[in-house]
Every structure is written in C-alpha cells, then in structure tokens.
Write a protein that binds this DNA or RNA. Structure first.
Length: 327
DNA sequence: AACTCGGACAACCGCTCAGAT
DNA sequence: TATCTGAGCGGTTGTCCGAGT
C-alpha cells in the first residue's frame, strides 16, 4: 500500500513564509518547545504542513543560526568533512553548529563544488592527505564515513554529536566525545568561533526574526542595510519588535499569545531544544571547561586551518586530490 | 530602460529510519 | 514481531535579485 501523505494536502499553503506565520511558529515553539511537529499546524492554525513548520524552524527561525557569508575556515571544514563523510550534510552541520545542513548544502552546491571543480581542473591538490582513520578518526566517525548503509550514516551523524552514544556504543573516549559535543555546543575553545564570537548566536538569530518583522511592519521605516548577523546587533530589540508587531496586529494575534515574544527571544535555552543534534538537556550536561580534543577534532580544528589556507588561495600544486570528492 | 541570464537561497518532495503500539 | 506513524535527511525545484548586454 502506498504511504499516506504526511499531511492533508488540501488547503496546505506553500511557498515563502510570511512574518505573521513566523511569529506564530516562534511563539508556539517557545511555549511548547520544538518537536511534535504534527501538532503545530493543528494547534496554531497555520496552514502549513508539519514538515514545512519543522523545516522553517530548523533552517531559519531556530536561535543560534548564523547566516551570511561563510568564513574561509568554515569553507575548509565543509570541504574536509564532505570529502570524509560525503553528502551527509546533517553530519557536517553537526560540526558547524551555527550553520544549518540546508545552508551548508546550498553553499556547497553553489560555491564550493564549483570552486573545487575549478581547482581540480587545474590539477591542484585540494588538501593534504587526511590522516588515516586508523590513527585519527574515532570509531564512530569511521563507521559514519565508511559504512554504506543509511542506518549507519544516520547513526554516525548522531554519534558525532553525542558523547553518550559515542562512549557507550563505540568505546569512543568520553573525553573526546565531550570535546566534540563541547564544540557543537559552542564551547569557548572551539576554533569555529571566529572573529565575531563575542556576539551571541542568539543575537544573530534574533536579527533574522527582526529583519523579517521589520519588513512586515510597514508602518515602521525600513532598517538601514546591515551585514546580517555579522554585526551581531539586531535592528530592533525584541521588546520593540514585539511591541510593534502587536500594534500592527491590533494587539491580537490569531491563536497566539504574543506578549511574551520579547521574552521568548531571551529564553534561548527553551528555544534551543533542537531535536537531534542540539538536544538541550544533554548539552547542559557538558563540562564548562575545555575538554581535550580528540585526534579527529585536532585534525579538523587545527590542521585544517592550514589546509584551508592552501585550498582557498588555490596555490599551485602538483598531483590531484587525494581524497574522493563526491561530485 | 528593458530584457536575459545566472547566482543564491528558501522551500518542497520523496525516501528512510526509529520509536510506539 | 509486524505494522504504523512522526521525524529527519538529502536531492531537487522554484523564486528572487543583481549583473550584464
């Protein structure tokens, strides 16, 4: 028998999300937490498929998302992990917690693939040979990178981010696993936190929403153009946004209690509950001190920086890419 | 100024997996 | 144990916008 559709297609709205819908979704998630997506359109009145709601939250509204240009360092990480893991964007995204898998996938398809193709065309070396999995990659990562079954790759993606699973199932040293998780959790020692690390990821995600709202609030003058996220300064405070939005709705939002929206954005822990890699209760158990990096981490975090530099300036080199490129 | 083309990115689709029953 | 269903993932498409002609 055929699989029933994930949701009733009749009356389901498609296409770009409106600021109103975003607010409804954000408010709902703030109140109930992410998850149980099937209930979201039912309880909010959103004429959206549950999958669409989840995707919108995960890829755009979720706090902690960094948008805008990828740094050369990030590019290198992506290239490296892509060569290691293939097109397992979720797994790759677990190493770049501020980026969504969709973002990384898009960036790969539009920028990096082209860049690497060009580089490959001139027969240059993209990166020095990665260390063998025997001496560097933890077992879970080896599994993720080398096993062809979908089950293992999904599990592997999770293991990358989950010290409990890593240590329990694979004998992956807890310290190493924790270090990975610490990075994922935005640990201070993370080499992925680049220049604007001082600005919270929360600010950037709030900027996303603020930007939307500013576009929505026709009564308000448009905000001056700004580099999204990088400045880490929202165009309006959450309270202002909330207040203005309420005004524009005449103080009412259908099916949504909005007054707490400003507070909502201050409650990042509640909103950070990202099913999957950002399991907040588990994240909160992470040590606050920097754990020693696993060999894999070290390779990715330290050595890749040099490799990235080599890659990005497309310096002339001989030979060809030593690692398989999945395109 | 109008049109075309291509890049960038948001969103959708279909498949698979995992948990619940 | 088998089946069902919700959630997640990766591939693909659609749309917008800026650059070039």
């Amino acid at each position: 028998m055929g699989r029933p559709p994930c949701c009733d297609k009749v009356g389901i709205k498609k296409g770009p999300w409106t600021p109103e819908e975003d607010i409804i979704l954000v408010s709902y998630v703030q109140e109930h937490g992410p998850g149980n997506w099937r209930a979201v359109p039912i309880n909010t009145g959103l004429m959206r498929c549950s999958k669409s709601c989840r995707l919108r939250w995960t890829n755009y509204l979720r706090p902690g998302i960094r948008r805008g240009n990828f740094t050369p360092h990030e590019e290198g990480i992506i290239v490296h992990l892509q060569s290691l893991l293939g097109n397992r964007w979720a797994a790759i995204a677990s190493y770049l917690p501020q980026r969504t898998d969709n973002d990384i996938k898009n960036y790969w398809n539009t920028h990096l693939k082209k860049k690497l193709k060009k580089h490959q065309a001139i027969g240059a070396i993209f990166a020095p040979p990665p260390p063998t999995t025997d001496d560097l990659a933890p077992p879970s990562i080896i599994t993720a990178a080398t096993t062809t079954t979908a089950a293992s790759h999904v599990a592997g993606a999770g293991m990358l981010a989950d010290p409990l699973i890593c240590s329990k199932q694979d004998g992956y040293p807890p310290a190493a696993a924790e270090s990975t998780a610490h990075v994922i959790a935005g640990g201070r020692h993370s080499p992925f936190t680049d220049g604007d690390a001082s600005s919270s990821s929360y600010a950037s995600s709030m900027d996303n929403i603020s930007k939307l709202l500013n576009g929505f609030m026709k009564a308000s003058p448009p905000p001056p153009p700004q580099q999204q996220n990088d400045a880490g300064k929202p165009s309006a405070s959450a309270a202002e946004v909330s207040s203005s939005l309420l005004s524009s709705f005449g103080g009412r939002m259908p099916g949504v209690s909005l007054p707490a929206f400003g507070d909502t954005l201050q409650q990042q822990p509640a909103l950070m509950g990202h099913a999957g890699y950002y399991d907040e209760p588990r994240r909160q158990q992470q040590p606050t001190t920097a754990a020693p990096l696993s060999p894999m981490d070290r390779w990715l975090f330290e050595e890749s920086a040099e490799q990235v530099a080599d890659l990005m300036d497309l310096s002339a080199a001989e030979g060809c890419c030593p690692v398989p490129m999945m395109f």
